[in-house]
Write a protein that binds this DNA or RNA. Sequence first.
DNA 1: GCCGACTCGGGAGTTTCTCCCGAGTAAAAT
DNA 2: ATTTTACTCGGGAGAAACTCCCGAGTCGGC
Lengths: 222, 222
Amino acid sequence: MKDHTTLLIIDDHPLFREGLKAVIQIDRRFEIIAEADDGLTGLKLATELKPDITLTNISMLGIDGIELTRRLKALLPKAKVAILSTHSDLTHISLAMHAGASGYLLKHSSPAKVLEGITAVANNQTFIDKTTSPSISSETLGVKVLEHYESQRAYENLTPREQQVMRGLVEEITRDELAEKLSVTTKTVGNHRSNIMRKLALKREIELIRFAAKIGLIETNP
Amino acid sequence: MKDHTTLLIIDDHPLFREGLKAVIQIDRRFEIIAEADDGLTGLKLATELKPDITLTNISMLGIDGIELTRRLKALLPKAKVAILSTHSDLTHISLAMHAGASGYLLKHSSPAKVLEGITAVANNQTFIDKTTSPSISSETLGVKVLEHYESQRAYENLTPREQQVMRGLVEEITRDELAEKLSVTTKTVGNHRSNIMRKLALKREIELIRFAAKIGLIETNP
DNA sequence: GCCGACTCGGGAGTTTCTCCCGAGTAAAAT
DNA sequence: ATTTTACTCGGGAGAAACTCCCGAGTCGGC
């Protein structure tokens, strides 16, 4: 490892950035060369300044950390990204790793752990903080990624009209209102629904709603 | 205002606490006398040390910041609590204020803004960071609180059996399975459902699911 | 042209839901 | 001790929603 590793910090919480900076600055091997509070400026800075490691949050307005990772790796394949997230679930972890992140660190964990993670990434290792999800193997990661992409793909494989109907179905309007909105009969809406349920292999309404939430079609207030 | 205001910081993210401490320590009027990383120890520290202001996050395992506020105000009505949250929606804000918080600050906002808020609370003012929800009047706050409590109350006004059926309805099991689980006929489950929908003034399945999510009956993956 | 995919909806049957009602039961009130 | 009240269970009848199967019209592509 070089004796000087440059870092870019991307997080939409100024206070959190302060904390991270305070912790990292203790270790003289690291130098924070820039920070950003949203994904777009973060991506711009990363491509311009080419830091050794880009440390980014996931949940941000506009470009989120995962999308940022994806784009940055597309532009600069050798760039190293470490995710710093509140989410310790497999879905987020696997999406991040799949997007090309080298590390997945948790905001809940101790400063020492975070430094450990950054150091590992600087040394070209892959680091996943397993504090809350102890049993992450590359297989389970793969499975989760697959599941998520399959959900997304399954939805995208619906015809345009079916997608439109599905979006209507998971809104709080009645079938009649939806039919009217789409200028078809209630019967047709029902038929589309039937096809959608079959194509997505769902049985009950709540499964449809969960599916819609999973692929970001509807909000689930946090 | 006293020339020295004591603070207790409660947040489950060590790094965030670091950032907050770094920012607050710049202002010599404040002294951080303790910190905690979960609600229960936070509550214990608050009652023992009686800080002038308890600064707490909302989302924490076990006792969350709102529940902590409620309990602390019950024990020490003169204690002042400032919430520091990522959520800028009315529901959270109003629940917090209703629980007895004196301030509602956002993690997204600038260090200066956070200091401003703490200062205001120290001066016995009520401070709500309106950065992302500009139009918060006491009326809208009241309405939201009312809405939330009415939902909760409406659910509690269901009979025990109805609550049981409702919990079953929002799980991913079929009517038949639910009927079998409750040792009644499908017909009875249907009748209960009908009564539930009428009592809660709901029309569609998705409304039922949203309602269940609102009162914390089911998880909505974050 | 003709093929395939998409969209729309009818027919027929099934499941689910609503609304109304009565029976059994257990606790609370008088 | 009897009445009242609330709750639970389910039947009946009809409405609404859903499924599965099918045919017709449309449109872009080979």
